[in-house]
Design a protein around this nucleic acid. Structure first.
Lengths: 145, 145
DNA sequence: TTTTGTGCAAACTTTTTGCATGGTG
DNA sequence: CACCATGCAAAAAGTTTGCACAAAA
């Protein structure tokens, strides 16, 4: 949060209360892949409601600053999560085709692949996103019966 | 296309001309990540226009049958490509953050990671999708100047 | 002939935008 | 005080749905 203030001052963005509480919502809900509406609801529930358009504008701003990462799990809306210091600490997503739940999977084995991509295709890789589709343990059990 | 006929007969789906020409459009545009609107336009241009709603319904059907794979490159619409026999022949996508172009990258090094995921998380992996974000060669050159 | 699919238009959902007002630097 | 950000409502964009008609099995 302190880093954010720094970042905002550097780029001459105004540090409004709305922008702070949107980020705070993500800090309070780590690992949850919030949509714009989720954020809006969270803020409403804690009596700090802001305009939905502002939520959208803030999510876009924070994504541009790489504070958040935008992602899509195929449910028709964009979802966001905190981008924890891009270079280290990477995780992937396990998406259940049956119940739709999304779990995380810790791993950082993709760095080698990233450099292979860069070398073979002359493409300057900045980030990656990996999703696994399949069936979670619960849904596997259900379908056995 | 013959496989499709077989598949349709087995599952008692009707093999309409609309469904055939949608698939044909993908066969004619391999490696192009078509959106519903793209497909609709392609068919209109070749004077075999069908209803946009039918395009959507057909894309969903073909995805359910794993003939197509649905994907998202963050441009606000779903895109689809032919699912070339899932087990072999995998490729990933290189998405340019500057111009938005999407290139393919051939690779099948992820099988090991898939089984690691399955083992460590009790998640039955069926498929995966990997996207690299960065800057394509052209955009790298442009920004140098 | 029965059943499933298509086309059209309307509805719905998510996201974006214009503009007057308000708050930050 | 100048400028940027917010809120609201309207609009835009993509996708889904209801229903009458058409076509496949």
């Amino acid at each position: 949060m302190a880093q954010l203030k720094e970042m905002f001052r550097e780029r001459q963005y105004k540090l409004t209360s709305q922008r702070q509480i949107v980020l705070q919502a993500f800090l309070d809900h780590q690992g949850e892949h919030l949509s714009a509406e989720d954020v809006h609801n969270i803020l409403r529930d804690q009596s700090s409601e802001i305009g939905l358009a502002t939520v959208y504008r803030t999510l876009e701003l924070l994504s541009d600053l790489s504070v958040l990462q935008k992602m899509d799990f195929g449910d028709g809306r964009s979802r966001y999560e905190i981008n924890e210091d891009s270079t280290s600490h990477h995780h992937h997503h396990l998406i259940c085709l049956s119940c739709g739940k999304v779990r995380e999977f810790e791993d950082d084995l993709l760095d080698a692949l990233e450099s292979a991509v860069a070398r073979k295709s002359n493409f300057a890789v900045v980030d990656h996103q990996l999703k696994f589709y399949g069936y979670c343990q619960e849904c596997q059990k259900k379908s056995e019966t």
